[in-house]
Simulated scan of single mutants.
Amino acid sequence: MFEKDEWTQQELYKYTKELEKEGINVVLVDTILKPLDNIETITYNPYEMSQMPENTVFVFYCDTGKTTKERLNFYRKKLPNHKCVSLRGGRGYWRPNYQLFDEM
């Protein structure tokens, strides 16, 4: 899951479920001051984010996903004790009514 620098919306939901079982928090980070629909986000603030537990995973998004992917190394330097990932496609690919169903 952490081999890739970016997650799709489906992977975000899937990995969030898996990591929450292990007690790891996944936080969606808004870098463009445009919150996504139907999911909780926080605004990028390195100081506040560095105060979160060390096993927290931050998923950054912008309008297209390109800028946050390019800036991942910058975010990782600012938050060395946390995992940082980019949301693939950013806000443009976000489907507000998307749901992840458990397999039967």
Rank of each mutant, 00 (worst) to 15 (best):
L36C: 08
D37T: 11
D37I: 11
D37W: 07
N38Q: 13
N38M: 12
N38A: 13
I39Y: 08
E40N: 14
E40T: 14
E40H: 11
T41V: 11
T41L: 01
T41H: 01
I42W: 03
I42C: 09
I42S: 02
I42D: 03
I42Y: 00
I42F: 01
T43G: 03
Y44P: 02
Y44S: 04
Y44E: 07
N45T: 12
N45Q: 12
N45H: 13
N45K: 15
Y47K: 14
Y47P: 07
E48C: 09
M49A: 03
M49K: 07
M49P: 13
S50M: 11
S50H: 06
Q51G: 13
P53W: 11
E54F: 15
E54Q: 15
E54W: 10
E54A: 15
N55L: 04
N55P: 08
N55H: 14
T56R: 02
T56Y: 02
T56L: 01
T56Q: 01
V57R: 00
V57H: 08
F58W: 04
F58L: 05
V59P: 00
F60V: 04
Y61M: 09
C62I: 10
C62Q: 05
D63R: 08
D63F: 09
D63G: 08
T64W: 08
T64C: 11
T64E: 05
G65W: 04
G65C: 09
G65Q: 07
